[in-house]
Design a protein around this nucleic acid. Structure first.
Length: 455
RNA sequence: GUGAUUGUAGCUCAGCUGGUUAGAGCGCUGGUUUGUGGCACCAGAGGUCGCCGGUUCGAACCCGGUCAUUCACCCCA
């Protein structure tokens, strides 16, 4: 058999020791924040029944689902004519499981299955990988982690306010100083569509308007009419286009007038205003937060608040997002469960911190001290020392072979181990070990007890 | 799914209009230093130039195909 070059599937990555140190730094920050706000951890399987997953993410989403081929003779159900009928017929016969696409749908499934045992409102967080058969590019992977926090069983706007606070805490703790949390309300979108006379087309409206910064108003107008908008409706939008992102109170005031004829739109505005007054009551500023009534976000199940976070002046897309849904569990037979949640994209946050050089403080030293020695006799002596260090909760290792001392030092240096204990015949005779500080290069002979104190 | 981009040493890349034994930096191994890492100096190992075919006296370079990569669009974290 010929030797083959190993490789990874497109869009997947290994995380070596230094990447893991940085990832854990991010993940710990997020997990600690979730716990601080009273969320409890949940994990669900990597694979779900395909029936749980399909139909929840739209047609495109279904395309992006990874399907798992049935075990054994997966073709046994397939008839010759099925193949000519197309994948739609064959797929259910060869695959009954798929990899999770996000954490929200598995969570909804869990809530429905455990509805009698859960304490509502239920606050859960979940940090796990998800998989999408997307075409990878910058900041987009086929396997990536989401860190979700959701509250289900209440429509209190305190949840929305607390989400904003958690975002600010996490980003602050990670050293990010230039980012924008966009917030909107789905009802406002509905209201805008209503006011311009294009009810129900808010999705199209937003995907077009979203490109305003990139392609300009004229091109957006073209796209809107391609998507079937009346010229009259489009012209009614121009006040919004000219509306600049000013103070939040000004934006709200502008839309109170614009949406005056839309009951649902005004309701959305009212909710948004309530979130900000709660924020104020919680003693939080509005820094980093802007109201963007054109923020849409893809998933069609949002019904209330919508969030999205972008770090400014970096080449990565949104790093966090979420919103409120009134009927997440409805498809699984449990109606009227309101919830609100959001997700941090760890992989993108990682890319952002890397791009901004904010990982400097994260080191990945493993052991605090390494035992080096000259010969077999010293090795036995060193084994006792390394165990004693570990008993004192000091992360320690011993070089596994009686190699040249130079080689042992190089190893310690490369692994960023800050201290080395050297054991030779002299040390064994006197009982005083040589402790070397690798950063300064200085070394001293001292008793083990003294070393334990020092480390 | 659409449109581009790039494939040369472990990594990042150079290689003039096709012309002998394909180079550099970093990394790696060894030595200067048989009880001392980083720094310096010296030496060395390491390449079917992505793969297949074509043009040519001659191809890393030109042409065709193929695979892989990265980026953008769509959509998304």
């Amino acid at each position: 058999m010929s030797i083959q070059k190993p490789g990874l599937p497109k869009g997947t990555r290994d995380f070596g020791p230094s990447e893991m140190a940085k990832r854990n730094y991010i993940l710990d920050t997020i997990r600690d924040t979730f716990k601080l706000f009273g969320f409890q951890q949940l994990e669900t399987p990597a694979m779900e029944n395909l029936s749980t997953l399909t139909g929840k993410y739209g047609d495109e989403g279904d395309q992006l689902l990874y399907k798992i081929l049935n075990s054994g003779d997966f073709l046994k159900e397939v008839l010759p004519q099925d193949v000519t009928e197309g994948t739609g017929i064959v797929l259910p016969k060869v695959a009954e499981k798929g990899l999770r696409y996000d954490l929200t749908v598995p969570f909804a499934r869990y809530v429905v299955m455990n509805r009698n045992d859960l304490v509502f409102p239920f606050k859960r967080f979940q940090v796990q990988p998800v998989w999408r058969a997307d075409r990878p590019q910058k900041g987009r992977y086929r396997e990536f982690y989401q860190c979700d926090a959701d509250v289900v069983g209440t429509d209190s706007l305190i949840c929305e306010a607390e989400i904003l606070i958690m975002i600010k805490r996490v980003f602050g703790a990670l050293g990010l100083k230039d980012y924008t949390v966009k917030i909107n309300n789905r009802k406002i979108l509905t209201g805008i569509a209503e006011v311009i006379g294009e009810s129900g087309k808010e999705q199209d409206l937003c995907t077009a308007i979203d490109k305003l910064d990139k392609i300009g108003w004229d091109k957006v107008k073209e796209e809107l009419s391609q998507r079937g908008f009346d010229n009259e409706s489009i012209s009614k939008l121009s006040p919004i286009v000219n509306q600049t992102h000013g103070a939040i109170s000004e934006t709200l005031e502008f839309y109170r007038i614009f949406l005056a004829t839309s009951e649902i739109g005004l309701k959305g505005l009212e909710e948004l205003a309530e979130v900000f007054s709660l924020l104020d009551a919680l003693g939080e500023s509005q820094e980093f937060i802007i109201v963007d009534p054109m923020l849409a976000r893809g998933l069609s199940y949002y019904t209330g608040a919508i969030f999205e976070v972008k770090v400014n002046n970096v080449s990565i897309g949104s790093v966090s997002g979420g919103g409120r849904y009134d009927n997440l569990t409805g498809v699984f037979g449990l109606p009227d469960v309101s919830g609100v949640g959001f997700s941090f994209g760890v992989d993108r946050i990682y890319d952002v911190l890397e791009e901004l050089g904010l990982f400097e403080s994260v080191t990945h030293s493993s052991s605090k001290v390494m035992v080096a020695y000259f010969g077999e006799e010293e090795k036995l002596y060193g084994l006792k020392i390394v165990q004693e260090l570990r008993n004192q909760k000091i992360p320690a290792e011993i070089y596994p072979e009686a190699a040249k001392i130079k080689k042992q030092f190089t190893y310690a240096d490369k692994k960023n181990i800050p201290f080395v204990i050297i054991i030779g015949s002299e040390e064994m005779k006197t009982g005083k070990l040589t402790l070397k500080n690798m950063a300064s290069g200085s070394q001293n002979a001292m008793e083990l007890e003294h070393i334990l104190d020092l480390l």
